[in-house]
Structures are given as structure tokens and as C-alpha cells.
């Protein structure tokens, strides 16, 4: 437990502690406003044409906000010293070696996917997906105010991605990953000699497939099926709905592809942790 307290109070981990309070606070703040709008309706035009002068009203707010933030930063800087460890030594690898805290969700993905997917492809999808959001979310409602009712799908997807897959994984990576990148509960001692038996098998193996070429084809089929079947089925059922008509085929394909790529992470985590599955698709060139 002591080492856990030492870890939590490490100067560089202060931002993560701050996030533990800031995220719930802002979730609550926005939830309250969303409930309010959903109950009383979107504020009318009249209220909006209500303009105020930037000087003094906005500048005063900015000034007060800047003073408060500088006070917090000042106290933070006076009370907590930035860390400085031993001089760098390429021959002494610390165990565990961790990236800066804001990249730990990415480092966490390395457990479940090979480096080229976890380190390059999925981050690429995150960036491309973020940029694509305004162009694939064609819902004109919920612009410029908090709401839950008017865009439940968009909010659910983004909050899941941001809160669970980014913030929570970052916290897990910082506080619960120990030597050998093994998971340790807060009260467990970090044991650098801990040997975790690797009994993971590939999905094709579970299905009794032993031959490489067949396994390769099987894996391809599973991955292709994962990305194709759901969207095709949904399109077949609801393709004529007004929403999908407006969305159009191209956007529909992009949305479902990005959505399923995001879900692939928790699915792979569940497969690994629950069923001890290493790879879904093993091919001569790469493994997924």
C-alpha cells in the first residue's frame, strides 16, 4: 500500500489526481444543464440577441479567471517540486518504463494489440476520427447548448471513447501497471520477479484449427465479418429510414468503420482477459 500512496503522490501524477476530480465535476455540471434544456426547451432567439460589451464584461471575467488560475498554478509550483531523477543511463532500464502520463492509454493498448496497430494505426484512426466528427455527424440539433435527448448516440460514443478508453486507461496505466507491465491491485506489492504464465492462444486454435493457411483464412473471415456483417444487417433492416437516407452510404460506411474500430479495443480486452485469446487473426505479415 505504501508504494501505491507513493505512486499516487508522485509529482508528475498530480494532473491525474486533478482529472479524477475535474472530469466528474464537469460531467455533473454539463449533465445538470442538459437536463435543464431537455426539460424547458432550447432558449429562444430573444434571449440570444442579448449582447453585452466585451469591455468591460468579458475582459473582467477573463481577468478574474486568469488570476484564479495563476494563484492555483503558483501554489502548485511553490508546494510541489518538479521531479529530477538520476542522470540518464541507457544501460539501466527501469521496470516498468512508462511514457508520459497523457500517452498511457496508448501504451495500454500495446498489451492487446501489436505495436503497429496499437502505436500507429489506432492512434491514426483516433486522429482521423476526431477530425471527421463534424463531417459525419449530420444531426443539426444540439448546436451550442448542452442536451442529452437530442443527440444520445453521439454523446454516448464520445463519452465512452474519452472517459473510458482515454482517461480510465490512462489512470490504469499510471497507477495499476507495475513491473513487466503486469496489473497490480493498489494493495499488492510490486514484485519485479512475478512470472505470469502466458497461456494465451489464438482464436483459430480454440476452434480446433491447427494449420497456418486455414487459420489465416479463418482470422480474415472473422475480422472481415466483424466489420461487414453488423453494418450490412443494420442497413438491410433500416436502409430506407430517413436518417440513413440523409446520412448517405459513404458517411454510413465511415461511421460504422470508425465505430467498430473503437469497439475493437474493449472487445479485444474482453477476449484477452476473459478467454485468454492472443490473436484473432494470424497472418504471415501481421497479427491482429
Amino acid at each position: 500500500m505504501e508504494h501505491f500512496i507513493a505512486l499516487v503522490t508522485k509529482p508528475d501524477n498530480v494532473p491525474i489526481l486533478a482529472m479524477l476530480f475535474l472530469i466528474p465535476y464537469f460531467m455533473w455540471l454539463s449533465y445538470k444543464q442538459a437536463r435543464q434544456t431537455d426539460k424547458t426547451g432550447v432558449p429562444s432567439d430573444a434571449a440570444l440577441n442579448d449582447k453585452v460589451y466585451v469591455w468591460p464584461y468579458l475582459c473582467r471575467n477573463e481577468f478574474v479567471c486568469a488570476i484564479i488560475v495563476m494563484l492555483v498554478l503558483g501554489i502548485w509550483s511553490i508546494t510541489i517540486d518538479a521531479p529530477l531523477e538520476e542522470p540518464s543511463d541507457p544501460t539501466k532500464t527501469p521496470n516498468p518504463s512508462k511514457a508520459p502520463w497523457y500517452f498511457l492509454a496508448l501504451q495500454e493498448m500495446l498489451v492487446y494489440f501489436d505495436p503497429w496497430i496499437a502505436g500507429v494505426v489506432l492512434p491514426g484512426f483516433i486522429i482521423a476520427g476526431l477530425i471527421a466528427i463534424p463531417y459525419i455527424d449530420i444531426n443539426p440539433k444540439g448546436k451550442g447548448y448542452y442536451t442529452l435527448k437530442e443527440r444520445p448516440f453521439a454523446l454516448a460514443v464520445f463519452c465512452f471513447g474519452f472517459i473510458i478508453l482515454w482517461i480510465v486507461l490512462m489512470i490504469v496505466g499510471t497507477f495499476l501497471r507495475g513491473p513487466g507491465w503486469n496489473l497490480f491491485a493498489p494493495w499488492e506489492k510490486w514484485d519485479p520477479h512475478l512470472v505470469v504464465p502466458l497461456t494465451n492462444v489464438n482464436l483459430s486454435y480454440l476452434f480446433g484449427i491447427r494449420e497456418a493457411a486455414t487459420a489465416n483464412f479463418f482470422g480474415f473471415a472473422v475480422v472481415a465479418g466483424y466489420f461487414a456483417l453488423g453494418p450490412i444487417f443494420y442497413f438491410w433492416k433500416r436502409g430506407t429510414s430517413r436518417f440513413l437516407q440523409e446520412l448517405g452510404l459513404v458517411r454510413y460506411v465511415i461511421v460504422s468503420f470508425l465505430f467498430l474500430s473503437m469497439l475493437a479495443l474493449p472487445i479485444k480486452m474482453a477476449l484477452r482477459l476473459g478467454l485468454k485469446i492472443k490473436y484473432v487473426w494470424v497472418s504471415p505479415w501481421f497479427n491482429i
Binding site: E86, S88, V120
Partner: peptide, 20 residues
């Protein structure tokens, strides 16, 4: 240029090896 710096950047840039 301490251990923290050196290894965090080593870990952070290692993934670039695997760029397709």
C-alpha cells in the same frame, strides 16, 4: 535528461519502429 526523461521518450518513440 534524467532517467525519467530518457526512458519515457524511449518508450514513447519505440512505437515508430512499427509504422507500416
Amino acid at each position: 535528461w534524467d532517467q525519467l526523461a530518457f526512458w519515457a521518450v524511449t518508450v514513447g518513440t519505440n512505437m515508430a519502429r512499427a509504422t507500416p
